[in-house]
Simulated assay, not measured.
Amino acid sequence: MIDVAVRDDVAVITLARPEKLNALTSAMRADLATAVREHGRHTRGIVVTGTGRAFSAGEDIHQAVGRSLVEEVETFHDMTRAVLETTVPVVGAVNGLAVGGAAEWTLCFDARIGTPAAEYFLPENHIGLSISNASSYLLPRLVGARALRLVLDSARVSAEEALALGLLDEIVAPERLVEAAIARIHHWSAPGAATAVHLALLRPSPAEVERAFAVETEAAGRVEASGIAQAGMSRFVNRARG
């Protein structure tokens, strides 16, 4: 479930499934892409945040077991594509833990502001899944050669570590998080600013992003065909039930 409210001409999209740490079902992913496309045309910018102690636990693995991993990955890709199609700034307000596909989604945002409780966690490698959201291109663009370690280690990255790496641009108090993100958008989109032009010039190359989508979809097909993806997701679900 997602909530959307327009505040000071900025669309605030809130992941609102706190009882599941805002884990993203396929329906939520489609709704997010739709909301970004809609509000990316009619507002000064978009803020994305979460409810509760997590930004998002990423893919809802309980729902994904038995489903086509390729189809699941492609819905994540469309969330990233939707952000990069906008002509307004998109800022992540990372209120807590950001996992997997949700963490990867933030990589295409124009800025990421976190609280001290923010964490990044890319667990796919040790589950037997593959990364998505063009993160094979976007993560090295942000953190350089350290991208490989972040993916292979599957370790949690604290807010301070994320700031040092470039995953976060700023850390603010929790009560200021959304306001700070809105203020950043207002500063960037002041009347007379050439913001749309510079977003087009400086955002990740659409061609490179689409190339990354293609190789990531192919990689998802490989881990699915090998059986390690479904085995890893089943282990995760059974461990959670236990």
Rank of each mutant, 00 (worst) to 15 (best):
G96Q: 03
V91T: 12
E74V: 10
T75A: 10
V73W: 08
G101Y: 04
G66L: 05
E74P: 04
L122P: 00
M79D: 06
A98V: 09
V65D: 04
I113W: 00
V70W: 10
D78N: 13
V65K: 09
I113L: 00
A103K: 02
D110G: 03
W105M: 12
E74L: 11
C108W: 00
V99K: 01
Y120P: 00
Y120G: 03
E85M: 06
A117L: 05
A102L: 02
G66W: 00
V91W: 09
V73L: 10
A98T: 07
F76R: 03
E104L: 15
E85C: 07
G66N: 06
G66F: 00
L84P: 14
S68V: 02
A118S: 13
E74R: 15
G92N: 10
G101W: 03
E119A: 14
E119L: 00
A82R: 01
V83W: 07
T86K: 06
R81V: 07
G92M: 09
A118E: 02
V88L: 10
E104S: 13
M79Y: 01
R112M: 11
N125S: 13
T87W: 09
H77N: 15
N95I: 15
N125Q: 12
F109K: 02
P116W: 12
P116Y: 11
P123L: 08
A64D: 05
L97E: 15
P89V: 13
A64G: 02
S68T: 01
L84F: 08
T80E: 04
C108S: 15
T86D: 02
L122H: 09
I113D: 01
V73G: 03
L107F: 11
A102E: 09
R67M: 13
G66I: 05
I113H: 01
V65C: 07
T87A: 11
G101N: 09
V83Q: 07
R112L: 10
N125M: 11
L69V: 12
R112F: 04
E72S: 12
M79A: 11
T80M: 03
V91E: 06
G101S: 09
A82I: 00
P89A: 12
P123N: 06
L69T: 03
V90C: 12
F109S: 05
E72A: 12
V70I: 15
H77W: 08
V83D: 07
D110K: 08
V88P: 07
R67S: 13
S68H: 05
C108L: 05
T75Y: 10
A93M: 08
V94G: 00
V94L: 15
G96R: 02
M79P: 13
T80Q: 05
L69H: 11
G114I: 02
V73M: 10
T115W: 04
G114P: 01
G66D: 05
V90F: 05
